[in-house]
Amino acid sequence: MGSLELVGWITVGIVLCALAIPWFLWGNSTVVAGLPVWLWWHVGWMGLASVVFRQFARRAWGLGIGIEPGPYPGPDSKQKSKPKPTGAELESERRGESP
Protein backbone atom coordinates (compact mmCIF):
# COMPACT_ATOMS: atom_id res chain seq x y z
CA MET A 1 0.00 0.00 0.00
CA GLY A 2 1.77 3.08 -1.23
CA SER A 3 1.93 6.52 0.24
CA LEU A 4 0.19 7.80 -2.89
CA GLU A 5 -2.81 5.72 -1.94
CA LEU A 6 -2.67 7.11 1.59
CA VAL A 7 -2.58 10.69 0.34
CA GLY A 8 -5.47 9.93 -2.00
CA TRP A 9 -7.67 8.56 0.76
CA ILE A 10 -6.77 11.42 3.11
CA THR A 11 -7.87 13.83 0.38
CA VAL A 12 -11.13 11.94 -0.03
CA GLY A 13 -11.69 12.14 3.73
CA ILE A 14 -11.07 15.88 3.79
CA VAL A 15 -13.46 16.46 0.88
CA LEU A 16 -16.13 14.38 2.64
CA CYS A 17 -15.77 16.54 5.75
CA ALA A 18 -15.55 19.80 3.83
CA LEU A 19 -18.80 19.47 1.89
CA ALA A 20 -21.06 17.73 4.41
CA ILE A 21 -22.29 21.26 5.06
CA PRO A 22 -23.07 22.87 1.65
CA TRP A 23 -21.23 26.18 2.19
CA PHE A 24 -22.01 27.20 -1.41
CA LEU A 25 -25.72 27.31 -0.50
CA TRP A 26 -25.10 29.78 2.35
CA GLY A 27 -28.17 31.99 2.84
CA ASN A 28 -30.20 29.94 0.34
CA SER A 29 -33.80 29.27 1.41
CA THR A 30 -35.15 27.30 -1.56
CA VAL A 31 -37.56 24.61 -0.42
CA VAL A 32 -37.93 21.37 -2.39
CA ALA A 33 -40.56 18.79 -1.44
CA GLY A 34 -41.06 20.33 1.98
CA LEU A 35 -37.40 20.52 3.03
CA PRO A 36 -34.72 23.17 2.45
CA VAL A 37 -32.54 22.28 -0.52
CA TRP A 38 -29.41 22.43 1.66
CA LEU A 39 -30.86 19.67 3.80
CA TRP A 40 -31.41 17.50 0.72
CA TRP A 41 -27.78 18.07 -0.22
CA HIS A 42 -26.70 16.93 3.23
CA VAL A 43 -28.86 13.78 3.05
CA GLY A 44 -27.41 12.89 -0.35
CA TRP A 45 -23.88 13.64 0.81
CA MET A 46 -24.20 11.33 3.78
CA GLY A 47 -25.39 8.58 1.43
CA LEU A 48 -22.32 9.19 -0.71
CA ALA A 49 -20.11 9.12 2.39
CA SER A 50 -21.48 5.73 3.31
CA VAL A 51 -20.69 4.35 -0.16
CA VAL A 52 -17.17 5.80 -0.01
CA PHE A 53 -16.59 4.36 3.47
CA ARG A 54 -17.71 0.96 2.25
CA GLN A 55 -15.29 1.15 -0.67
CA PHE A 56 -12.51 2.11 1.71
CA ALA A 57 -13.35 -0.78 4.01
CA ARG A 58 -13.23 -3.18 1.05
CA ARG A 59 -10.13 -1.96 -0.73
CA ALA A 60 -7.87 -0.09 1.62
CA TRP A 61 -8.70 -1.15 5.20
CA GLY A 62 -5.54 -1.13 7.31
CA LEU A 63 -3.92 1.67 5.29
CA GLY A 64 -1.84 4.04 7.38
CA ILE A 65 -2.52 2.25 10.66
CA GLY A 66 1.12 1.27 11.15
CA ILE A 67 0.52 -2.23 12.48
CA GLU A 68 -0.20 -5.35 10.52
CA PRO A 69 -3.09 -7.29 11.98
CA GLY A 70 -2.15 -10.50 13.74
CA PRO A 71 -4.02 -13.80 13.46
CA TYR A 72 -7.14 -12.65 15.34
CA PRO A 73 -9.22 -13.68 17.00
CA GLY A 74 -7.68 -16.43 18.99
CA PRO A 75 -6.29 -16.83 22.47
CA ASP A 76 -2.80 -17.65 21.24
CA SER A 77 -2.44 -14.33 19.47
CA LYS A 78 -2.66 -12.50 22.76
CA GLN A 79 0.46 -11.70 24.68
CA LYS A 80 0.23 -10.66 28.24
CA SER A 81 2.09 -7.63 29.52
CA LYS A 82 5.65 -8.32 28.74
CA PRO A 83 9.01 -7.50 30.30
CA LYS A 84 10.46 -4.13 29.55
CA PRO A 85 12.56 -4.21 26.34
CA THR A 86 15.89 -2.48 26.19
CA GLY A 87 15.12 -0.59 23.02
CA ALA A 88 12.56 0.16 20.40
CA GLU A 89 14.08 -2.15 17.78
CA LEU A 90 14.08 -5.05 20.14
CA GLU A 91 10.44 -4.45 20.89
CA SER A 92 9.34 -4.57 17.26
CA GLU A 93 11.53 -7.56 16.59
CA ARG A 94 10.04 -9.43 19.50
CA ARG A 95 6.55 -8.96 18.17
CA GLY A 96 7.89 -10.56 15.03
CA GLU A 97 5.24 -9.67 12.45
CA SER A 98 6.29 -9.20 8.89
CA PRO A 99 4.49 -6.49 7.00
Partner: peptide, 26 residues
Protein backbone atom coordinates in the same frame (compact mmCIF):
# COMPACT_ATOMS: atom_id res chain seq x y z
CA UNK B 1 -24.31 14.82 10.59
CA UNK B 2 -20.81 16.13 9.94
CA UNK B 3 -19.59 15.34 13.41
CA UNK B 4 -21.26 11.97 14.06
CA UNK B 5 -21.61 10.66 10.53
CA UNK B 6 -18.29 11.70 9.02
CA UNK B 7 -15.73 13.00 11.55
CA UNK B 8 -16.55 10.32 14.09
CA UNK B 9 -16.67 7.62 11.41
CA UNK B 10 -13.17 8.59 10.29
CA UNK B 11 -11.97 8.54 13.91
CA UNK B 12 -13.70 5.17 14.27
CA UNK B 13 -11.07 3.93 11.82
CA UNK B 14 -8.07 6.10 12.70
CA UNK B 15 -8.34 5.78 16.49
CA UNK B 16 -10.79 2.92 16.89
CA UNK B 17 -9.31 0.32 14.57
CA UNK B 18 -5.79 0.95 15.84
CA UNK B 19 -6.97 0.71 19.45
CA UNK B 20 -8.78 -2.49 18.61
CA UNK B 21 -5.62 -4.03 17.14
CA UNK B 22 -3.57 -2.97 20.15
CA UNK B 23 -6.26 -4.18 22.53
CA UNK B 24 -6.31 -7.59 20.83
CA UNK B 25 -2.56 -7.82 21.13
CA UNK B 26 -1.96 -6.52 24.64
Amino acid sequence: GLMDGIIFAILWYVIGYKQWLLGQQY
